[in-house]
């Protein structure tokens, strides 16, 4: 399993230091096998990714992405088979439409879109997977924790500010 790949202990990364938490939703047939290949090829990559395997990228409900952020993720990777390679013929084509639409919605709501990464990784692309994770970790390290979302529960915004019903100008 790819998440068993160990990096050398980084002495700087003490337990107290913040490290990005990235959730990857991947399909069983391509990306998971790709991540597995990265592991069996002994490619060393960042360990801050938690992989969740699903049958197909078509199974990745957009709610998973929101749920991941809700539970404290700083970034999300969504990955499946390249177009044309879907084990179920068209799951990734359907998923692609959904991701396109939902991505637009998240962007509209002001989510930092560098935190949501979509990719196609095939079973032969162990290197691409490792690079994808490394890039994601670097990017999210730069952005820091997704405080905006995580604080939503903690802060009672209602008490802080009496909201007005004004629309766009507000």
């Amino acid at each position: 399993m790819s998440n068993e790949v160990k990096t050398e202990e980084n002495p700087a990364a003490s337990e107290k230091e913040w490290q990005p938490k990235i959730i990857a939703f991947v399909c069983n047939w391509c990306t998971y096998a790709g991540a597995d290949l990265a592991g069996t090829s002994r490619i060393v990559y960042e360990p801050h990714v938690r992989i969740i395997k699903l049958p197909c990228s078509g199974r990745i409900d957009v709610s998973f992405i929101v749920k991941a952020f809700e539970q404290g993720a700083d970034g999300v990777i969504v990955s499946g088979c390249h177009p044309g390679d879907c084990h179920y013929t068209s799951g990734n084509y359907h998923a692609r439409r959904r991701f396109a639409g939902f991505r637009d919605l998240l962007e509209f709501c002001g989510f930092e879109m560098r935190r949501v990464i979509f990719s196609w990784v095939s079973a032969a692309e162990g290197k691409k997977w490792a690079d994808l994770v490394n890039e994601a970790v670097a990017k999210i390290r730069e952005l820091g924790p997704f405080k905006e979302y995580q604080k939503l529960l903690a802060e009672d915004i209602r008490a802080k500010e009496e909201t007005s019903s004004d629309r766009i100008t507000g």
Partner: peptide
Amino acid sequence: PPFTDFKPQDPQEFIK
């Protein structure tokens, strides 16, 4: 309906 359908050439500029 658009989300029950797809085209192989749908835009995917946001997918790496």
